[in-house]
Simulated assay, not measured.
Amino acid sequence: MTRTKLLAKIRQVFPGHDPEDVQRVLDEYAGPERLRVHLAILKLCDEDRRDSPRHYVDSACQDHRDVLAWAESPQQLRPDWFSLSVTERAKVAKADRQQYARWLAR
């Protein structure tokens, strides 16, 4: 994933905003896996129809793994996850990966 793709996603998720303004907010998170976290934040904003990434940037600054899990593995956070069989878990994990890949490809 490149900065060009990130800017394209910013334009897609926030069509009425200046991409550079959104990028400045995203850049407040500068921790591990920066680009991956920025994309996860955009995905969450897209799903929640938020008009700013501020909430998720603040969350990522606390623990970036939360934002990654919410965006990339939402079904694996189900309350019944540990009661699922190994086969069911594999299906859920695959569905999460496919869902995230579809969002990235849009």
Rank of each mutant, 00 (worst) to 15 (best):
M1H: 11
M1I: 09
T2K: 04
R3H: 15
R3K: 09
T4K: 14
T4Q: 15
K5L: 11
K5N: 12
L7M: 15
L7F: 07
L7P: 01
I10Q: 01
I10S: 10
I10K: 00
Q12Y: 10
Q12F: 06
V13W: 00
G16A: 13
H17A: 02
H17N: 06
D18T: 12
P19F: 07
P19N: 02
D21T: 12
V22M: 06
R24V: 10
V25Q: 08
V25D: 12
V25L: 10
D27P: 03
Y29D: 02
Y29N: 05
Y29I: 06
A30I: 10
P32A: 12
P32W: 10
R34F: 07
L35M: 14
L35V: 13
R36F: 15
V37L: 02
V37G: 03
H38I: 13
L39W: 03
A40I: 04
E47C: 04
E47D: 02
R50Q: 13
R50L: 06
R50W: 13
R50D: 08
D51V: 09
D51K: 15
D51G: 08
P53T: 07
R54A: 12
C61R: 14
D63C: 14
D63Q: 10
D63K: 06
H64F: 13
R65E: 15
D66W: 10
D66N: 15
V67T: 13
A69W: 11
A71N: 00
S73R: 11
P74C: 14
L77N: 08
P79W: 15
L84D: 00
S85Y: 02
T87L: 04
E88F: 04
R89L: 10
A93K: 14
A93R: 10
A93E: 11
D96V: 08
D96T: 01
R97C: 13
Y100S: 15
A101W: 08
A101F: 11
W103Y: 10
W103S: 06
A105W: 07
